[in-house]
């Protein structure tokens, strides 16, 4: 296992390098100039030229690239080209918001999706199954930002139960949880749709297996048949989809954070693109890449826990 882990970790280095290189050059291919974006159209040309020099944008591209890699190797994400603030510090401030949103959404998605999938699988081709399938299909088709606005209208405007916007105070439980509820529900419901469909289909396959029939024939209670025998075998694809969704949710958080005006990596990414803040943009992409790599690794490791036949 340790050898497997070491190999996987070693393989992340070329993955990271490829992504970093791609991000570095793609960011610079986007039309628009950070200095002009920062100073606005009223600024004098001398000021724009002076700022470009200070930002290091007049240096040859390869020098900027190696400087970026060298800083990163030292664990330094650099400073924002616009505010001059340390990007590590900015990330430290906003990352908890993205993490809590993603984890809560996974929690909601798995908590609702898996039981619904099992239930509809056990009651396949009944009215409830049809309703579940149509609802989950609708859930997959609704964009996160649209669902977010509908949820805001219902819970914040009509029912006035929860706040519509903002991230709340991380040090204040009530403020934090109330501000988290609606965005987590938005992302969680979208994930639920996907998890429900996959769980249903995995369970349908497993429930037809001989060993399930045997378990029933032995007289085992239905609950034991479903949860101990069938679900265990269906877990591998379910873990896969949850892993995939964990990575997707981080990307979906871009829209959700913007709609709910929550601080977070997604909103930081949007701001960096709008302001042409190359260093911030690169850093956020590095962190996103890191997340995807780690989530994939964890997913692979969990396989062997849920299915002992899988060994590394």
């Amino acid at each position: 296992m340790l050898k497997y882990l070491a190999t996987r970790l070693a393989l992340t280095i070329p993955t990271f390098l490829a992504v970093l290189t791609l991000v570095f050059f793609v960011v610079r291919v986007i039309p628009g100039d950070p200095a002009t974006a920062a100073l606005g159209d009223y600024a004098s040309q001398e000021a724009v030229t002076a700022l470009r020099e200070r930002m290091g944008l007049n240096d040859p591209l390869y020098i900027q690239y190696f400087r970026f890699l060298a800083d990163l190797a030292r664990g330094d994400l650099g400073k924002s080209m616009i505010t001059g603030k340390s990007i590590s510090e900015m990330v430290r401030q906003v990352l908890p918001y993205t993490l809590e949103l993603t984890l809560s959404a996974i929690f909601v998605g798995a908590l609702l999706g898996v039981p619904l999938g099992i239930y509809t699988a056990r009651n396949s081709n009944t009215t409830i199954d049809y309703i579940g399938r149509i609802t989950s299909l609708a859930g997959l088709s609704v964009p996160a930002f649209y669902l977010g606005i509908l949820i805001m209208l219902l819970f914040a405007i009509k029912l006035k139960l929860l706040p519509a916007v903002g991230g709340g105070d991380l040090n204040d439980f009530k403020s934090n949880i109330t501000h988290l509820a609606l965005p987590a529900l938005t992302l969680g419901l979208i994930m639920t749709a996907s998890v429900t469909r996959l769980t249903r289909s995995a369970m349908l396959n497993v429930l037809k297996e001989d060993y399930v029939r045997t378990a029933r024939a032995k007289g085992l209670p239905e609950r034991a048949v479903v949860f101990r025998h069938a679900l265990r075998a269906a877990l591998v694809p379910i873990v896969s989809i949850i892993g995939i969704w964990a990575a997707n949710l981080i990307a979906d958080s871009v829209l959700t954070e913007t709609v709910f005006a929550r601080p977070g990596l997604g909103k930081m990414l949007v701001g960096a693109i709008m302001q042409r803040d190359y260093t911030a943009l690169q850093s956020v992409m590095v962190i996103y890449t890191g997340f995807v790599v780690v989530i994939n690794l964890i997913t692979d490791l969990v396989y062997s826990l849920v299915d002992p036949r899988i060994t590394h």
Partner: peptide
């Protein structure tokens, strides 16, 4: 507050 989305500002 920084809220680029008009719908969010309006709902807020």
């Amino acid at each position: 507050r920084f809220m680029p989305e008009l719908n969010s500002r309006e709902l807020g």
